[in-house]
Amino acid sequence: MRSWLMVQRRLVVDALQRLGRSPMSSLLNIVVLATAMCLPIGGYLLLANVERLLGNAGAEPEISLLLAPETGSKDRAELERVLRGTAGVRGFLLVPREQALADLQRRAGLADLLEGLPGNPLPDAYVLRPASGNPAEIAALAQTLRGLPKVSAAVYDAEWTQRLQSGVEAGRFVVLALGLMLAVAMLAITFNTIRMQVLTDRAEIAVAALLGATPGYLRRPFLYFGALQGVISGLFAWAILALGFAWLRGRIATLLGEFALGGSPVELRLGDGLSIVLFAACLGWVGAWLSARQYAAA
């Protein structure tokens, strides 16, 4: 066991020396690999921020039932009874006009404008959650509700968030496809790097094989090289993304504020960074293994 560890330690040192032997080439490889990782991961994080924005904006569809000004408590009780019995209504919440005004003043920064009005222009309202998420069914429900007594309007205004949600779904697919393609590209880059190294070191490999080196021993420096290159690329990618999102953080927070949406931007956490490094190391190892298996063994 001890002698095995000795060999592994020496092979790791050997892999580090390989990286240092051609620093410019190693650096360029690392930059290319890091950039390849940044694109899908950065895209994924941007989408996560858009989703958070959507979540905060209430991506779940809602219908606002605006009541006529003369609606009294008896009318509201009757209306609530009808709503409970209406198919397609999952739940509802009364928003009194005073609360609606207070929310508007607080959230939209329209306090000055609203204070200039002679009274509260907002009606009492019910906010309904439809049972279905289908836009056509929600629109039909809104149409039905418009005909109820004491209802002056039924507003279904979640179409834009739904469209944006569809866009996010499409974006997620694009990011996934991009990630897969770039992962294959990373494998190919590592594969080719190792192939070149094997060709460069073929005399040494042949001598080592004659001196009793096992195929595993011959492959391992290249595997460690691939994994090390992956780890360093992963750290580079992590640093680039962390810096990029540190730069974007203020802008995203401002955007959330402008849309009167609470919460903070999605950021790269320690676990995410470590996952990037681990993923890059695994890709490097696999790329090196595929190449070393084919070339070093031959």
Partner: peptide, 9 residues
């Protein structure tokens, strides 16, 4: 080299 391959200290 042969000793390293064989895992000598």
């Amino acid at each position: 080299l042969p000793l390293q391959i064989a895992g000598y200290e």
